[in-house]
Design a binder for these strands. Structure first.
Lengths: 199, 199
DNA sequence: CGTCTATTTGAATGTACTCAAAAGCGGTGG
DNA sequence: CCACCGCTTTTGAGTACATTCAAATAGACG
């Protein structure tokens, strides 16, 4: 029936298999409910203040999640690449105005659930609730680790730890966004890199 | 049958009712599996490097979760008071050595699940999986917000926002721990407070 | 009242920031 | 093919926010 996007299904299902066991009926239902959508580089998936309509799984491309403060400064909250989930979770689950913008850094292909679809699936597929519980748990553990590292490590060490942990992202994403993610200015990151290169 | 700790059950069950609906059989099972335990001020619930054996619900008292770095500096990750859940989540779910210490700041009374109990209950009570999915989701949203605020706000504004958000904790917890939580030195927090008091 | 811990104050220092300007790096069009 | 444009990165000088270290003061508790 479905001729397109067979490899997409495989990527997501293989990803889910790492965490939970689904019956083939469940997998079928899941895939029927997902919508696949392409975005161009620069396009917004969510804009601050709007409702975040989708929980998205990244099939290809990369995105940034960021907060724009009153003075127009952008603060990068996280990046997302292949096999990451991305949304403004607070906005998505409560259907309230989003705190963050989500914008594509490259052309992207995403698999998306709406909130009501996901709720429907939670009831029909108990293992899905388990799956997201685990995914979110991991995200929370990582976020806590990041908070501590922001406090105990110097900007230099945070940068080194970032390129060590996400070498792929470090290469695909402009430096000034990495600076923002690390909580420092682009100028200072440049100086850190110069210092590292000198030895 | 159970004569002790009746008010305990009520506190936890009322808390859970805010998020999910449980049958009375489920509630009974849940309560049978929970262990209630008292800790004295200063006692450790978890020590860095050990396995975190319990997910704990705070009935009374307060605790700090903190990381001790190689130079012996302590970095407060979070506080926990009545109606909060506390654990080293990474350690608890994977049964790996804990990253953090958890210590009582006051005498505490906790309701605790072991990992295997919780897994058993996840299977017997699907709504429990949903419950923790929601709880962890909220914790993750808050952690992300904290990361952004640490980047965009000055130490002064972070402190003001802390006492605004957690007035109770601000009063029960020593100032130098709040400084650590905010990622600043105790001396600097003292100066911030002096500055606020002057106007 | 004395001891122990927590908080405050001050001077010197350091890490990271601001502002301004220059240099690098693609792409695009003449 | 090179010139120009926009965008990213680099460099430098001056500054600000926060830290360190040391010492004084204030609170809590026996």
């Amino acid at each position: 029936m479905k001729n397109t996007s067979n490899s997409h299904e495989r990527l997501l299902l293989a990803y889910m298999d790492r965490y939970v066991t689904l019956t083939s009926e469940e997998k079928l239902l899941l895939m029927e409910r997902l919508r696949s959508r392409r975005y161009l580089k620069g396009q917004y998936v969510v804009q601050q203040g709007d409702i975040c309509l989708y929980e998205s799984f990244v099939l290809s491309g990369s995105l940034k999640v960021f907060y724009s403060d009153s003075s127009g400064e952008e603060h990068v909250v996280m990046f997302a690449v292949e096999e990451w989930w991305v949304s403004d979770m607070g906005s998505f689950v409560n259907q309230t105005p989003a705190d963050y913008n989500i914008q594509c850094l490259e052309n992207c292909e995403l698999l998306q659930f709406t909130r009501s679809t996901l709720e429907e699936l939670y009831h029909k597929i108990p293992a899905l609730e388990r799956f997201f519980r685990i995914i979110i748990q991991n995200a929370f553990v990582a976020a806590q680790k990041r908070i501590v590292n922001n406090h105990r490590l110097s900007a230099r060490d945070r940068y080194m730890s970032f390129i060590d942990q996400y070498p792929d992202i470090a290469q695909r994403v402009p430096q000034y966004l990495i600076a923002s993610y690390l909580g420092i200015t682009k100028e200072f990151l440049s100086k850190i890199r110069a210092q590292i290169n000198r030895g």
